[in-house]
Design a protein around this nucleic acid. Structure first.
Lengths: 135, 135
DNA sequence: GTTCGTGCAAACGGTTTGCAACAAT
DNA sequence: ATTGTTGCAAACCGTTTGCACGAAC
């Protein structure tokens, strides 16, 4: 994802593309992992040494409100997910590492049996261990 | 659930049944909701006015370690679940209220297509709105 | 009399907020 | 000139911890 694409994307979502915001968006959106705010701060500081924690939180919250990313309350603290389309999650129970599981890969049946509520969304959260593939 | 049953249950899990612990267990285990630590504290204080926040946390963590309940990092902060058998969750997106969805009611297919990880557990988290049933 | 449980208050980690300085329009 | 963005530090909330007292074995 290029700087220009990010700038356009921010604008398209009504977010003024300041240098800080672009740097944050660039890191978060071009990232398959599910970073915490602290991780975002650390990594953005490598490109942009002078940026405060508050700005990172402000920007991530703003992007969340504008639908550019999602927040998940997995583990201690919140984690940011650049994948805003439907998908499931696999969480490594040892490392806490999260990976996306494509929506089409799994399917749920029986949801129609839930009569006393209106479903707007659902997600499968799988826990286990990633297999090592070294050696 | 009676006091005596709770006492036995605690003992069976290697937890010495002090008055405080019994009061906490009585509240949490006889409870379909998914209370936060603060909610537990508030409610236990109604029966047992002198109990500290630390004791509530200590006891809940202890019960968690001994397998008497589960913790879920839903929303801000942790929530305690007295249902330790497999089940799914429905979360009301307005109120944050959580209800259990029986395991048998839903089923997931496609889990066998996940080859690069070992699955130890999974859960469907559904979001939506409970239908009002007043009137 | 040693171990265990409890209360208090301080510390902690993640997040939000108030405010003053500054940049953009 | 007004509005939007940033940094700092303080505040905040949920949770954990250190310590001293008291109860249980």
């Amino acid at each position: 994802m290029t700087d220009i694409e990010v700038v356009d994307l921010l604008r398209a979502h009504g977010i003024r593309p300041s240098a800080h915001r672009v740097a944050i968006a660039l890191y978060v959106l071009g990232n398959e992992t599910h970073p915490s705010a602290e991780t975002v701060l650390r990594n953005v500081r490598e490109r942009l040494p002078v940026i405060s924690r508050a700005t990172v939180y402000n920007t991530l919250n703003l992007m969340n409100e504008k639908g550019l990313l999602r927040q998940h309350p997995f583990g201690p603290g919140t984690v940011f997910d650049s994948n805003v389309s439907r998908h499931h999650h696999f969480i490594d129970s040892e490392t806490g590492e999260m990976r996306d599981v494509p929506w089409e890969k799994l399917s749920v049946s029986g949801l129609d049996s839930i009569k006393d509520a209106e479903i707007t969304d659902y997600m499968i959260v799988i826990r286990g261990r990633f297999k090592k593939r070294e050696a």
